[in-house]
């Protein structure tokens, strides 16, 4: 049985659910025609909150391929979304590694810094490659929305599904 919650099948159950959530989140990019919701950033938040560091080694590989799928959908340069997703997974793993997994405020602060870093990197990459200044206050809106979504997503994943955020 697929959703058997015994210890043996838990890995598959965790992997399956989190991959479905990431898949839906990325696919929603096709139908979002407003500048408020950036589903790529929301996927980054989900990956950051996922229990990736406690999953098997295949998890980063899945994330890598989801990144390629995302690039195919939104026509970004191949490798862009993978880098972004894996960076947030790395932040997740590092925050686990240094034992600050339980401190929500610290994790939120790490996410905030990561998003700002991504925003500056994107801005500089576009500026130097296309000589175009893309900065407008409106561009910060998806970033803020992603930050705001941290709390409901964290609550949902931690308390309702009890699958992704560890509380050992």
């Amino acid at each position: 049985m697929i959703f058997d919650r015994d210890k043996k099948n838990n890995f598959f159950y965790n992997d399956f659910i989190i991959n479905v959530i990431i898949f839906i989140s990325i696919s929603l990019n096709l139908f979002s025609s407003n500048s408020i919701f950036d589903f790529t950033l929301l996927t980054c938040v989900i990956i950051f909150l996922s229990k990736g560091s406690r999953m098997n080694w295949k998890y980063p590989l899945y994330i890598f391929f989801w990144g390629i799928y995302s690039d195919l959908i939104i026509s970004y340069p191949i490798g862009y979304s993978s880098t972004l997703f894996l960076l947030f997974l790395l932040m997740n793993q590092l925050s686990n590694f240094y034992g600050i997994f339980f401190l929500d405020i610290v994790r939120f602060f790490i996410l905030f810094i990561s998003l700002i870093f991504v925003f500056i990197f994107e801005y500089l990459a576009v500026y130097y490659q296309f000589s175009t200044n893309i900065f407008t206050p409106l561009n910060l809106l998806p970033l803020l929305i992603a930050l705001i979504f941290y709390f409901p997503l964290n609550y949902l994943l931690k308390n309702n599904l009890k699958l992704y955020v560890s509380k050992e």
Binding site: Y59, P60, S82, L87, L90
Partner: peptide, 14 residues
Amino acid sequence: RKIIFTVLLISISS
């Protein structure tokens, strides 16, 4: 090991 593997994949993506 997991962190190193993730860093490796980030390098490939970049």
